[in-house]
Simulated assay, not measured.
Amino acid sequence: MVVRERILETALKMFRTYGVKGVTMFDIARDCGISKKTVYEHFADKQSLIDEGMQQLLNSHIAYFNECLQTTENAIEEQVRNMRYIVTLAKTLNPVMLFEIRKYHPDTWRSIENFKADSILYNIKENLKRGMTEGLYRQNLHIDIVARMRQLQLEAAFDPIQFPADQFEMPTVMDQVTAHFILGIATIKGHKLVNQYLQIKEEE
């Protein structure tokens, strides 16, 4: 791995663990086993590391969602796999990071907001359309409303104000709200699949 990639990987790991405010360029250099001067040779400042790190994280999300769409048998399997992905992500992501980016790095947060509108919301809508076409979701769903409702659920699960880390485990929160969401939009045919996938999940 080249030095620049190692710096970025280390920075992103530290941001996801500790948040962005308390992590310094010296901390990143020390964790990489290099000098702070070397870090600055590749990144002008901490802001550039935050921007590029977040973009890499968002790009990985897009790649996964696209792969999931192509390899799942139906819309419910796609939803469940996306849930598992988000739960896995939640286990390695301190929600403080998003809170601090929103508060202290408005330009970076704007790119995250654009990602929500351009990718997350689009992905949710496409899944709803797929499920309705497959007869797994109710035909009377108002896609724009239901998609935004789901997006708000996802945002709330990552909000430390709504679900403080000392009171709630994010994977549990995500598991609960997702199961509730899918069961709420599924047809009788869809419910059978939901139960099947959730039972498989519990046995793993």
Rank of each mutant, 00 (worst) to 15 (best):
D118I: 13
L93D: 04
G53D: 01
I34F: 06
Q167L: 11
F26W: 15
H180C: 14
D175S: 12
S35G: 09
V146H: 00
M83N: 10
E67W: 14
I124W: 06
P171M: 08
P160V: 03
R4W: 08
L58I: 04
T187G: 02
Q151E: 08
F43L: 03
N59T: 03
W109T: 04
V173Y: 02
I7N: 00
F168R: 07
E9H: 05
F163T: 06
L93N: 04
Q47N: 14
K103L: 14
T10M: 04
K125Y: 12
N114P: 10
F115V: 02
N127D: 04
L93K: 05
K129I: 10
P171L: 07
Q47G: 14
H180E: 12
E78K: 09
M25F: 02
L141C: 10
P160R: 01
Q199L: 12
K125P: 15
E5S: 03
V146R: 01
V3A: 14
G33F: 08
G53A: 07
R6D: 06
A75W: 02
T92D: 11
M132D: 07
R16H: 10
N140P: 06
Y137M: 09
Q153E: 05
S60I: 09
L89Y: 11
A156F: 03
F158C: 10
A147W: 03
Q153D: 09
T71P: 06
K192Y: 14
K125G: 12
H105R: 08
V3N: 13
E113Q: 02
L183H: 11
Y40T: 08
F168A: 01
Q196N: 15
Q162R: 15
I86C: 07
V20D: 02
